[in-house]
Write a protein that binds this DNA or RNA. Structure first.
Lengths: 213, 213
DNA sequence: GCCTCAATTATACACTTGCATAATTGCAGA
DNA sequence: TCTGCAATTATGCAAGTGTATAATTGAGGC
């Protein structure tokens, strides 16, 4: 009885590419770039290493595509949480802030994923462009939310958006890096307080206080 | 003539350990954890790979020590920039904020170094403890600076310190990740504006405005 | 049902990684 | 000056890395 050849089923190119990208992202999130070897990625995707070379130009190509997918997913998350522009601007903004400061966005794995890409983003111009574009789009979205409040001069919007973005990113970082240091909901409240103070309005009242009986 | 054996000079244990740690940190900052191989570290330290095993229990041990050294250096930076408690509290706070938002603290390499450690910090309890301790000490320092202002109730200090820390970290992150997106000094000004707004005081006036003729 | 061919697997290779061990040699103390 | 020993280098190895190439085989079109 010779070593039996592994059974397999053929799937669409899209399905295979998605599965490989998802596997790569999971592994990077869990163990950093080092853990995302070709063999590990293939194993997690339920496939043989050779298939990676069949659907991608190589490991670097797969990594680039995975980064693209991650950034696209993050952006989709942001527009989803925002919803339609029916609610009043302050409430929309409050929802935007708190969404970033609780799971699944605020999560050690997500931060690990983000950190795992940093060096390649810096060395690969293609990835750097994706990074810059996504960041600026996020900030522009925030700026438009602030503009909708109708409280600030147009010339101040850029600085305010950068500041609020900083608050959100910074608290996200702290909470993701050291989850045990904060009570549940604490960072959401602090985020609303800080962004409200910067913009000169009370956002905390827009927040469903989950600690009240 | 056989291959000549490499000349070398003996050095103290401390000097060799420091050189190896410095080399490891440089490599991680430049190219991420992947680039910091034993051979690369040894080469940069002007030494042969075997010496790493002579002074450290292995590569992981060297990595841990390098992380410790980095965190200690960062902490020393913070207390240095603060200086003696002679100046008035608001000016001290302003100096603390701006120091984090300009080189050499705000720097792509530093961010890369920090990011390069994240996964090991998460998986190694020893490194995790160092991380938590350093973060909390930084925040406590910030909290005491805020308390010195004499404007806030003690019960509010924790939240304010977390918020200001978030602003600083977030802007540091943005500026380090995408330096080209900001004008020189812009993030310092935005940081002072935001921290001032959160704490209810004008910090911008404490900042030497370098853009005025 | 069978045939074809692309999707998938299997195998092999050159290179790198961390580490263990043995061979040297700089240099402090006599 | 010489000698001994620890600091340093040299060598080798097993495991893991990405990739190229050849061998199989699932499944849609006839």
């Amino acid at each position: 009885m010779t070593g039996e050849r592994r059974k397999f089923t053929r799937k669409s190119e899209d399905a295979r590419r998605e599965a490989l990208i998802a596997a790569a992202l999971e592994l990077i999130a869990e163990g950093g770039p080092t853990a995302a070897t070709v063999r590990a990625i293939a194993a997690r995707a339920g496939v043989t290493p050779g298939l990676i070379r069949h659907y991608f130009d190589g490991k670097d190509d797969l990594t680039r595509e995975a980064y693209r997918a991650m950034m696209a997913a993050m952006q989709a998350d942001n527009t989803t949480v925002l919803g339609p522009a029916t609610a009043d601007p302050a409430t929309r903004l409050a929802g935007f802030v708190t969404a970033a400061l609780r799971p699944p966005v605020m999560d050690p794995h997500r931060m690990g994923l983000w950190a795992g890409f940093i060096h390649q983003v810096r060395s690969d111009p293609d990835m750097a462009a994706v990074h810059a574009e996504t960041y600026l789009r996020y900030r522009d979205l925030l700026e438009s939310l602030i503009a909708d409040l109708g409280r600030h001069e147009a010339s101040a919007l850029r600085g305010l958006a950068i500041a609020c973005n900083g608050v959100i990113d910074g608290l996200w970082l702290e909470g993701s890096a050291l989850p045990a240091a904060f009570a549940p909901g604490e960072l959401e409240r602090i985020g609303l307080m800080a962004v409200g103070a910067i913009l000169g309005l009370d956002l905390l009242s827009r927040h469903p206080a989950e600690e009240q009986p």
